[in-house]
Design a protein around this nucleic acid. Structure first.
Lengths: 135, 135
DNA sequence: CTGGGTGCAAAGTATTTGCATGAAC
DNA sequence: GTTCATGCAAATACTTTGCACCCAG
């Protein structure tokens, strides 16, 4: 388990056991829904409340400590903020994978042929993961 | 106003005035949230209920007659199904624009270097539209 | 000690469901 | 006439808020 105490403090968040556990879960799982996060957290803190989950997720989002990823036809997942990347979502099992895709050429091309200024891009590819192709 | 009666019937949906109005609004507006759609519909049918909006949106989604577009940091919008395209979302005024981007090369490249099979892609670019860059 | 965090309960918002009436076909 | 849609009200799901108590710093 990575020590996120200092990182939380840099984001002006007290390093409570609940928050350390949330960051640890995010680190280990990579991507997780609110519902699954709550289920995992209840195992560690049997009296934790959903309100605590929501409050912390929202604080961490405001801080850009984590990011929300909106998945077509599924619930949003949350992940620790890292360098730009895209996502693959398995339509059958729901697994989410990070994928590194260089979108710079595309974004530059779009910027050149349009009147708007692009600040960020969100790409989700959907399909079947290796396991789900076979079963 | 385009006549969507036959198209609705092809999707096994009765062509009620409410449904024709929803399709017309989607056609004219391009992209709309549930909330805005409801406000527009109330002007046309003063006793329409939100339940009718949701039931019809859900039916049309199941039919692939319309699509949901999930926008980062904003509410989902709905649009009539058309050929593959991506979206631009203005972070300031919320305007959504369709953009045609050829992602085939990228998707082929990703498919070649990964173990999953890709069925669809959802790309949303965010930034500032022409107007919002100036004001 | 002090300020912020947690957990509970209640409130608020979003969405779905059941059912009687009414309209499409 | 039959089937399905609408609109209302109630139910469910999801998320936020207020507050008393508690813990990190």
């Amino acid at each position: 388990m990575i020590n996120y105490t200092d990182i939380l403090r840099q984001h002006n968040l007290k390093a409570t056991p609940q928050r350390l556990a949330i960051t640890d879960v995010l680190y280990v799982q990579g991507h997780i829904t609110i519902e699954s996060l709550y289920k995992v957290m209840v195992k560690k803190f049997n009296s934790i409340s959903l309100a605590t989950i929501y409050k912390n997720i929202n604080l961490m989002l405001e801080n850009s400590f984590i990011q929300e990823v909106k998945i077509p036809h599924a619930k949003s997942v949350y992940e620790l903020t890292k360098e730009n990347h895209s996502h693959f979502a398995c339509e059958k099992c729901g697994e989410i994978q990070d994928i590194i895709i260089d979108l710079d050429n595309i974004i530059n091309e779009v910027a050149r042929t349009n009147t708007f200024k692009i600040n960020s891009s969100d790409l989700v590819l959907s399909g079947l993961c290796k396991n789900c192709q076979q079963n």
